[in-house]
Design a binder for these strands. Structure first.
Length: 206
DNA sequence: AGAACGATCGACT
DNA sequence: GTCGATCGTTCTA
């Protein structure tokens, strides 16, 4: 299977965050394949970014994963009840990552809906808010701290350019082709870094 | 040991 | 728009 290589992640985080838009995220869970198209990301760079858990190279039990090789999954618990999935970037030892904020669901919809909503019916409102936030994405993909540290060049969780690269049928192209940059969500506490335009998303219009 | 806080979400007005 | 849930992480002492 042609998946994104470690070298894809081994470069400046802002480049990686932009290039990840439109890629296919694949999660293998209990014999099933869940997949979605990446449509929103944010960059976090420990070297210079007060919003990053590893700001100023802060090294603790939690941030240890950010110091792992590029192409590692960094997953942490937030607000006591949700999880966030990140892709570690930059050369090993430079703590930085791309936060996955939203996807377009493509495969394994039934399983994702069950993980997300249990037996509740999938109303239009729920469909609209299915995987449009970092906590929602992790819930729908069955990702928790147990998956922290996963190697993204492995078989359980990885990214690829096209659905065919993961043995999936072709999907329609992304709705949006333009990349919009703007300030990140929920980092008002982070001093000057709160205004960095490090959030990226695919949009229909520029 | 204790306290403060958070890269969020969903229920509710 | 507001607000509470809920608990691991981090820092202070």
């Amino acid at each position: 299977m042609a998946r994104l290589s470690r070298e894809f992640y081994n470069r400046p985080t802002l480049e990686a965050a932009r290039d990840l838009l439109g890629k296919i995220l694949v999660r293998r869970l209990e014999g099933q394949t869940l997949a979605g198209r990446v449509v929103e990301t944010e960059a976090y760079i420990g070297r210079c970014d007060k919003a990053c858990h590893a700001y100023n190279y802060r090294r603790t039990a939690r941030t240890e994963t950010l110091f792992a090789p590029p192409g590692t999954a960094y997953i942490y618990l937030i607000y006591g009840m949700y999880h966030c999935l990140n892709f570690v970037t930059e050369p090993e030892g430079e703590p930085a990552a791309v936060l996955l904020r939203a996807i377009e669901p493509l495969a394994g919809l039934e399983t994702m809906a069950r993980l997300r909503y249990g037996d509740k019916p999938l109303t239009p409102y729920r469909e609209k808010n299915f995987v449009n936030g970092p906590g929602k994405v992790c819930r729908a993909l069955g990702l928790t701290r147990a998956e922290n540290g996963l190697d993204l060049t492995g078989d359980v969780l990885f990214l690829c350019d096209r659905p065919e690269d993961a043995g999936l049928p072709p999907f329609p192209p992304p709705l949006g082709e333009h990349i919009i940059a703007g300030p990140r969500v929920g980092v008002d506490y982070a001093g000057e870094a709160r205004d960095f335009p490090w959030r990226f998303r695919l949009a229909e219009e520029a």
